[in-house]
């Protein structure tokens, strides 16, 4: 069995304090500078809704909303985002009231295994907020940073088109 001091070894490696507002709550992360925002959320704040699919910015599963923009949490160091406001899949509903995109994902069966879904949802919210995609093809193009290996693509795009058409929502 290892001693307590050995267990704390990692803390010697230059921890940084990172202040974040995550899903509306103030959080303080004590992490080494090389901890990605993704691992910070998952391993340190136990917000495991955000997923690691490739860890290299090639699948979109780790997409979160940071200061109103969709970004990849795997290619971001947590320390870079000190003072930022972050929304993850756990924070997109308002209490028990689902975000319209969440309901639309259920209605359109826009997922199967569900692993890419948190990233798809955050990306969709980012896309709608950006307001750059008008046509179905444009939505597809601007959602192409989120891979779905189950092939739920049609449902994903249908869901976004429906919410866009509904308008008004963020």
């Amino acid at each position: 069995m290892r001693s307590e001091t050995q267990n704390l070894n990692h803390l010697k490696q230059g921890d940084c304090t990172v202040n974040l507002t995550v899903n509306g709550e103030q959080k303080i992360l004590q992490v080494q500078p090389w901890v990605s925002l993704l691992d910070g959320l998952r391993d340190h704040l136990n917000l495991t809704g955000t997923k690691k699919g490739c860890d290299h910015g090639q699948c979109g599963a780790c997409t979160i909303i940071c200061d109103d923009k969709r970004i990849l949490s795997c290619l971001t160091l947590a320390v870079m985002k000190n003072g930022s406001e972050i929304t993850t899949v756990e924070g997109i509903a308002h209490g028990n009231e689902l975000h319209p995109i969440q309901q639309a994902f259920i209605d359109h069966d826009a997922f199967q295994c569900g692993y890419c879904t948190p990233g798809q949802l955050c990306s969709a919210i980012g896309l709608i907020k950006e307001g750059k995609a008008q046509t179905r093809e444009e939505v597809k193009e601007l959602m192409s940073g989120n891979l779905c290996r189950c092939g739920a693509n049609i449902g994903i795009i249908d869901a976004i088109m429906e919410v866009k058409a509904g308008g008004g929502h963020e």
Partner: peptide, 9 residues
């Protein structure tokens, strides 16, 4: 180039 997320970053 890239994806919407990467272009945002």
């Amino acid at each position: 180039g890239a994806s919407a997320q990467i272009r945002n970053m």
